[in-house]
Each structure stands twice: as structure tokens, then as C-alpha cells.
Amino acid sequence: MKRNIVIAVVTAAALVGGGTATALAVAGDDDDTTPVTRTDDDRDDRGEDRSDDRDGDADDGAVRAAAPGGVTAAEAITAALKHTPGTAVSAELDDGSWEIDVLAEGDTWHTVRIAPDSGKVLGAQKDDEDDAAEVRAALKGASVTAEEAAKAAAAKGTVVSVELDDDGDDKGWEAETRASGGDEQDWSVDLKTASVTPDRDDD
């Protein structure tokens, strides 16, 4: 017996209000049909998928926007010390600028703000800190500066802060890095060898 092949194509006009167009194709033997239906809902779903992709790109942009500009922590420290000579004790990316704490001669403290995109000095002010003696004692015999500690920690990620930890027996530099995905990690940098190890106090 010859096989009968029936091909029917039905195109429905857009429904009033819904705007749904349906195409139905039937092919095969007398008792074998395979319907294929496409609706506006399918197109809406694909539109939502593209929208989700765009939202993901926007989130990535937000992460990049939150990351430091072209000026590294080490470069910010160098710029701050050129403006205010002394010993850099900490550097932190805060409120859109680098803030560098400098212990100058006469045990006076200064905070120098550096632009993260240009390295220019945005401002400087004298602070009323009174722990100069403790800081100098902690740095006695140290051979690694804050700038060098920042450079060492940069091998682990983008450095967003570095500061002197002068508490207890394990004195050293503490550095915080940010990965490209936004994850942050704390590190300890040895005052004499500049070796970088995970901070044991980091949760």
C-alpha cells in the first residue's frame, strides 16, 4: 500500500488583544502526527533571557567600577611620601580615593589622599594620633616598607589596603586583596622577608 503523506500548514491570525500566532505542521503516516507550536510567550522568554544576560553584564560592570583605578597601593604610597615625607604606616582605598597614613618627623601624623586614577594628591591633613612610639618600636629592625609589602601582596590580587599590625608578638604588615570576581582575602606580610601568607585571623 502506498503511504499517504499529508502536509498541512495552518497559520492563525494574531488573536485580538493576545497577539498570539500559531503555526501547526503535520507530517507522516495517516495516524502519526507531530505538532510544533510557537507562541509569543516563547519569544517573550527569549527576550527575558537576553535581558538577564544584559543584567549580568551590568553586574560585572558594577564590580569593575568598585575596583581600584590604575594607581596601585604601592604607587599611591610613593605619591603620598613624595608630598609628605615620613614613614607610611597604612594605605586604604576608601570613599573613592587612597588614604595614606604617614608618620612624619617629630612624631606627627598626616593623612594624604591620592586619586586612584591619576595618582595626584587630593589633599592632606594633620592628625592627632598618639601611638608614634609604638609604631616606631614595631618597625625597629624591619626592612620591608608599606610600599614593598603592597608590591608583595599584589601577587595575590589587587591590593585595596595595607597596614601595620603592631599588636602582640606577630608584628607585620596586613594586606587585603580583591580578586577579579570581587572576593576579598587578608594576608600577612613579613616585616623582614616580605613573604606573604594567609592571615590566620581571616575568617
Rank of each mutant, 00 (worst) to 15 (best):
A14T: 08
D42A: 14
G19A: 06
D32E: 14
L81S: 14
P116V: 10
D169V: 12
V159A: 02
A154V: 08
D32L: 14
L122F: 03
G106M: 12
D199T: 04
V189K: 00
K140C: 03
A154K: 07
T177C: 01
R38M: 15
V189Y: 01
A194R: 02
K82P: 02
K171L: 12
A132E: 10
A66R: 12
D169F: 02
D170E: 13
T197G: 00
A88M: 07
A14I: 10
W109Y: 14
V196P: 02
A79T: 09
V159M: 07
G56M: 10
S195F: 10
T177F: 00
S90Y: 00
W187K: 09
I114V: 15
V10D: 10
A73Q: 04
E184L: 02
G61M: 04
R64K: 08
A153F: 14
A152N: 04
A149F: 12
N4P: 01
D30W: 07
G56I: 07
A150E: 05
T33R: 11
K2R: 04
R64V: 13
A25W: 03
G96P: 04
S188R: 15
T22V: 15
T108A: 12
L24K: 05
I114M: 04
R46H: 08
D49I: 14
G106Q: 13
A124R: 14
W187C: 05
V160S: 03
P85L: 09
H83T: 05
G28Y: 02
G96L: 08
P68E: 03
D30N: 12
D186N: 07
A14S: 11
T33I: 02
G123V: 15
D30S: 05
D167R: 04
S195H: 13
V16E: 15
W173N: 01
R64S: 11
D199G: 05
G47S: 09
Q125H: 07
G17P: 00
G106F: 02
A142I: 03
G182Y: 15
G47F: 09
L24C: 04
E99S: 13
V196H: 12
T37A: 11
V16R: 08
E184C: 01
V196E: 13
V160G: 02
R113T: 11
Q185K: 13
A12N: 15
A146F: 08
E148K: 10
P35K: 11
D41R: 13
A74T: 12
W173Y: 06
E174D: 09
D131E: 11
D201N: 12
W109Q: 06
G123H: 06
A66I: 00
V9E: 14
